[in-house]
Structure formats: C-alpha cells, structure tokens
Design a binder for these strands. Structure first.
Lengths: 335, 335
DNA sequence: CTGTTAGCGCTTTCAT
DNA sequence: ATGAAAGCGCTAACAG
C-alpha cells in the first residue's frame, strides 16, 4: 500500500490540492457536494496527512517530550498516566526520554528538542552536581518547559512539586513517637532539591525533639550497590540506628535486604518509613510505612500548565507553581 | 532566542544554502576552509536542523512507536529499557503509547502512524476479543512492525516471545510436587495468545498428573475488581483450591489481598506461583515464587529485528521469530 | 466556491 | 568548489 497524498486525491477527483486541503479541514468556503465527495474518497483511500509536512508548515509538532530519570520508578509511571491523559485530550503525542540520572544524557536529549521537534518539555531533571542548567534554561527561552518533582526553584520556569519538607518532618516525628532514639536518612544527593527538602524536614524534626544530627546518619549515594555497603556498615555498629527515613523507594528495598542479611528485624530492630509509590507497600514483609506522592496529579498539573503555555493561554509563570500534598500511611515497618 | 535555519547561516556567511547543507554533512565537495567556517558558525549559533524538514525531504522520521497495554507493568518498563538502548544506538526517538488494553485506543494510535510519523512500530497488542487486526496488518504493509510478548503468530510479521507454555507447565508441576490437589489459574482472557499458552501449559501439567481440569478453576477477568470477587467466591468454598498459577502479576497481588481478607495463609492454605517481573518478589509476605520473563532481552531482540528491517538489512520475516526463556524461582509462596 | 502560487527548512540534482 | 532550482506534502494568502 503506497502512501497517498493530497495531490493524489486532487488528481483523482479532478480538483486542486487546496480544495482538497480545505475540504478535509471542513472549510466553510467549500460546497457541501465537493466536501462530501472528497471526504468520502479520502476515507476509503485511507488518507492520513503527513505530519511532518504539517509540522513544517504550521511550525508546530503536536508533540511534547517527557524527560525523566527512570521509567521503572512507579512515581514516574504514574505521573506519565496523568501526562498522557492531558496530552491525548490536546491531541498531542508524547516522546519519552530516560536520563538514567546522567546529566550528559539529559543535555544530549535537550539538543534534539530544538527547532521544532517538540512544542514543549516536561522535565524532572537528572542528578546535577555541577548545577549546570543552561540546556534547560536555553530551551525554555524557545519553547515552554515545566519541571516536576525534581524542581529547581531558581530556574525561571513553572514547576509542580509536593510538600516534601512537611511530609518528611511528619514521617520523622512518627518514628520518634514510636520510640526511635537514633534515626538515619538515605537519599541520592542533597544537591537534588527534592531530596534536600526531605533531608531538612528530617533534620528539623530531630532538632525539635532535641535529638542530635549525626553526619554519619545521613547517607547519600547515587548507586544502590554503594548504599548497601554504607548501610551494612552503619547497621553492623554496636550503636546502630533504630530508625530510618528513606527518601528513595528502591533504596528502601536495599535496606530490607541488608536487614535480612544482618538478621535485624523490622520494626523491632529498625523502624522504617519511606517515600514510595509502589502499590504493593502493604504486601511487603513487613508492610511498608509510606509517604506517597500524588504522582498522577503531579503529571496532570504539570502538563496542564505546559499546555496552557503551548496554547498561549498563559504567559506568566510566576502564578503557576503548584504544590501538592503527600499521603502518609503507617504500617508494620514503623509499628 | 529565535530559531536559526540553514538560510540564516548562508546569508550571514555569504554563501548559498546548499553549501551550508553540504558543509554540515561533511560533504567531500566542500573546501576545508568553508567547511570549518560554516561548522564553527553553526556551533556557536547553536544550530540544529529542523527535524520535520528532514523527515519530509528524506521520507523518514528517525522515530519509532512503541505500543503497549500498560506502562506501569514492570515487564514493559524493563522491555522499554532494551528498546531505548537499541533505538538510541540507531539515533532514533521513541514515541510511547499505552492502550490500557483497549482495542479502539490501539486502532486510533495506529491511524496516527501512517504517512511517515514513524518508521517502525513495536507492538504488544491489546486484548482483542474480536480478533480484528486489520490496523496492524495494514500498517505492516507500509512500515516494519514487530510484535512482542502479546504476539499473534497468525499475523504476517516477525515476533519475539517467551517459552510461556513450558514455563507454565513447569510452574504447575512444581505446585503438584509440593502436594497441591486442586490448582486454579488466573488470567485476563484466553483470547490473548500468551495467556492461552500459559493456560495450556497449566492444563497439560494437570493432565499429565491425572488431575481433572475444572472449568470453575480457570478464572479469566479483564479487571482486578471482578477478579477479586471471583477469587473470593472460589476460595470461600469448602472444597476450595490449594494452589494457584497466576498468569498476571497484578492479579497475584489481588489474590494476596483476598487471602488476607479470608484469613487464608500462603502457602499453608494456598500455594502460589506467578508470572511476574517485579524486582521485589523476594520481599513480599510471603516471598513470591515467580516465572520471570527476560523483559530487557525481549525488548532488545524485538527492536533489533525492527531496525534490521528499517535499515533494509532484512526483508524476510520468516526467519526472524525469536523465543526466549523464562526463569523460574521458587520461594515462600509455593513452599 | 475554487484554483494558482508561494513557502515552511532541508537535500540534491544539475549547472557552472 | 559552489550556486540555482526543484521538490518533499501541506496550508494560506490572493485572485478570480
């Protein structure tokens, strides 16, 4: 089956290409008769317009890019649900890019977005120790860009985030209430703002309750393997911690493994509460106390802001930052 | 920052557009001097070609579509890793589409793929009771299409699948070996070939061991809610089953919930083994016996076949079907 | 109501 | 070694 163009239809029906174009877009200046004839023919010939020609001509791609660290993270898959929903209702397509938390990869992706490949970008930036955001800033001068979750408030663009500080504060307090005397914290890097917020909530809760903040109780790692070693070392100490606030779901599971290995019982020897969006938290052994981010809502809000900007309904970004609330659920791991 | 084109560069440097085009593609017919000048200018001006213009002109989009039922399924996220890897190495972009197992949604997506939006499609088809595959067949007459996991061997296109029959057979035998007297099976629909294969493996294992195949022990549902009801009913019977082979990961968790609700102990009252790709199977309560599909490999193989066809290295599909092997791991839930 | 024409940004003959 | 021109498929003045 060969690809059929507007010119093929025009020739076949003895009219001009512009007539076909207008008819197919249901223009008022075409007679009902020709319109019907053309539409019928197009349908039976299974005509679909060439999207590149349209994009070139119209200067828009009807496509957005979503740049995230990792698609196998439940938070991001759920966020993608929300994004997809909004994109489809705007008749847009979605390109998905995983950075695997590598800045260089992210930069390369952004280079591809220029000159019309996409009309907008949703990004949850990669771990960025150098704090080099030129690629994001440059992009946002050309097309709308909205950050979510991993937001950089210093960047001049809208963002959607959660009450990570408060949630972490409350989570830590819960462990204290349950009797924990020494609580440690795990994350990726305090350079990542959302991790920093969770860390600060943890620290302030300790402070409020007159507990010391130990440097060795703050474990930041960008690889699960390294984290396992650090945690193993920490939990093997005679004066080991008896509580954990985890900012990273998959690291929590690493800690579960280390506890099994060291024969430490959760929650008897270690109470745990974790930021996590897995729907199976309640089925774990023991069931996991969680801080759940409203992932779908985050994706939905972020893309709504994006499309408002793409459709030029909104030009100022100052008012469009949004903060959504997490849900804390206490289960066996912190009992 | 305005978008810069090849003409802008040409004008700025006092050469023609074709010279710029040739220089940027490192053509041998351009002098080293002009080449250098043009490349330097393009770089500092942060020039990137308009992909739609190239796609229109070259008649290819450098983009593939991946159509899957559900992105929050670990099998598919892992498959996407493999796909992404191969796509990037071919300098291709990836459009992701979720059908949510709705045929109509899938058909609409496929309509968008015509006329050059994508150069190829990887698809794991939606549940399709009507068995209407015209949209896939029509597409594969225009561009390369490769199926994976949810394959339809009757379709004239290459596919990558797993040894689902054998794996299911072995899984069932394991339960029998452990002493199960009555084993039930859960899935989405036996219209889906991969589910059918797993069902047949289950049936044949029962047959081999002289166990009856009861119709009420084959539970097919396309919604977790319905499944919960059916399973609740089945497990509340006085003559309830004492074993389960689950073809669907998320349904397995539904069964865990129902067991908790009915105060049935796994594996004491019900032994379970499940097709599942969650990396946290060993952390569940009890730990879950699994049949793990080599998801990354599936994605990688399928996209390699696809790109072989896109790059015209391969025109015949007969030889390119691939079957990969699952890994069975027995844990607490079937002990 | 319909056709002619120009042009979106790029590549590629065909000249020179 | 470089430029002029045509054309990928489509839309939108402009003309009639």
């Amino acid at each position: 089956m060969r690809k059929i163009t507007i010119n093929d239809i025009a020739k076949e029906l003895g009219v001009s290409a512009s007539t076909v174009s207008r008819a197919l877009r249901d223009s008022y200046e075409i007679s009902t008769a020709t319109k019907k004839k053309i539409m019928a023919y197009a349908k039976q010939a299974n005509y679909h317009p060439n999207p590149h020609a349209i994009s070139l001509r119209e200067r828009k791609s009807k496509t957005i890019a979503v740049v995230i660290p990792d698609i196998s993270n439940y938070f991001f898959t759920q966020a993608l649900y929300g994004i997809e929903q909004v994109a489809l209702s705007n008749q847009y397509h979605v390109l998905v890019y995983q950075t695997h938390d590598q800045l260089q990869t992210e930069i390369e992706f952004f280079n591809h977005f220029q000159n019309g490949r996409v009309d907008g970008v949703l990004v949850s930036p990669a771990n960025n120790p150098d704090r080099s955001f030129e690629h994001i800033e440059r992009m946002s001068e050309m097309i709308p860009v909205v950050c979510f979750d991993r937001v950089e408030p210093s960047l001049q663009m809208p963002y959607v985030t959660c009450n990570d500080y408060d949630s972490s504060f409350k989570a830590t307090e819960q462990l204290i209430k349950k009797g924990c005397k020494r609580i440690f914290f795990i994350g990726i890097s305090d350079i990542i703002p959302v991790i920093k917020l969770r860390l600060n909530g943890y620290k302030d809760a300790l402070k409020k309750h007159g507990m010391p903040i130990l440097q060795e109780d703050i474990v930041m790692c960008d690889a699960a393997q390294l984290l396992a070693e650090r945690v193993r070392w920490l939990l093997a100490k005679p004066t080991r911690p008896d509580g954990l606030v985890s900012a990273v779901e998959r690291y929590t599971f690493t800690v579960y493994d280390v506890c099994n290995e060291l024969q430490l019982k959760i929650p008897t020897h270690l109470r745990i509460i974790s930021f996590s969006n897995t729907p199976y938290a309640h089925l774990l052994n023991p069931s996991l106390s969680t801080v759940v981010l409203p992932a779908g809502e985050v994706g939905k809000s972020a893309s709504e802001i994006l499309f408002r900007k793409i459709n030029k309904k909104d030009t100022k970004f100052e008012s469009s930052n949004i903060t959504l609330n997490c849900v804390l659920t206490f289960r066996g791991s912190s009992a």
